[in-house]
Design a binder for these strands. Structure first.
Lengths: 110, 110
DNA sequence: CCTTTTGTTCGTAATTTATCGAACAATGGA
DNA sequence: TCCATTGTTCGATAAATTACGAACAAAAGG
């Protein structure tokens, strides 16, 4: 069968732009570990989960990436054995103008 | 004794401006009831707890006002038998420029 | 005093959250 | 085919959150 027909591809749910929820986004960013992930994505660009050196276990990190993904803050694209994480800045800015910007400023440098 | 020396006045703890914590503020605003309280304070000005008509029990409302107060988002001033709630907009804008503004915009009209 | 008003505090219960280790699954390379 | 890498999922636990009603406390006014 054609590669694109493969239903076994690791596909994760990402909310569409118009389904982003403000309280879900605020809640996602109210955790220090998740806020750190977002800051690192801003300063270092898209990168896989394993390259963040987070101060939590692998399974806990997986949980935090999922919360960020399901709130629409990040995108997770399968790439070989890993997932490339990137900020959904366009979608966030479209739904909540200035929000991410002000939070990043308030969070201060890395 | 002088009225101002009275230690029995209902005094509540309010964090100072320089002790405001971003994650605490985001967490406080990530609850729909608390976000509603803040929206109402913006559109209707300072007012007592009992005038919000919140969809929760009195004790639950008290809890939400406390979370808002302890995160530095609102001020609660004793006034007779009630507390006058007001937004600490100056302090919020000083610590987190643009944050409240963007959240209020994203939250939409009342 | 006694009562009313306003809001807090207490005790409890249900839900969610953050955390971990162990086991599992998918990919890609030797 | 086997193995190493990457990250998810499962099961368990401890803590935090939201919620309620009942009881309490302070203030104002009769």
């Amino acid at each position: 069968m054609h590669p694109c027909d493969n239903a076994n591809m690791r596909v994760l749910h990402h909310p569409s732009r118009r389904n982003l929820d403000l309280t879900a986004v605020l809640h996602a960013l109210s955790d220090p570990v998740r806020l750190l992930i977002v800051q690192r994505l801003v300063s270092e660009g898209a990168k896989p989960c394993g390259t963040f050196g987070l101060p939590v276990a692998k399974s806990t990190a997986s949980h935090h990436f999922r919360v960020l993904r399901e709130s629409g803050i990040i995108r997770m694209q399968p790439e070989g054995t890993q997932y490339i994480n990137s900020l959904r800045r366009d979608d966030l800015d479209a739904c909540f103008p200035g929000l991410l910007e002000s939070i990043l400023m308030a969070a201060g440098p890395l």
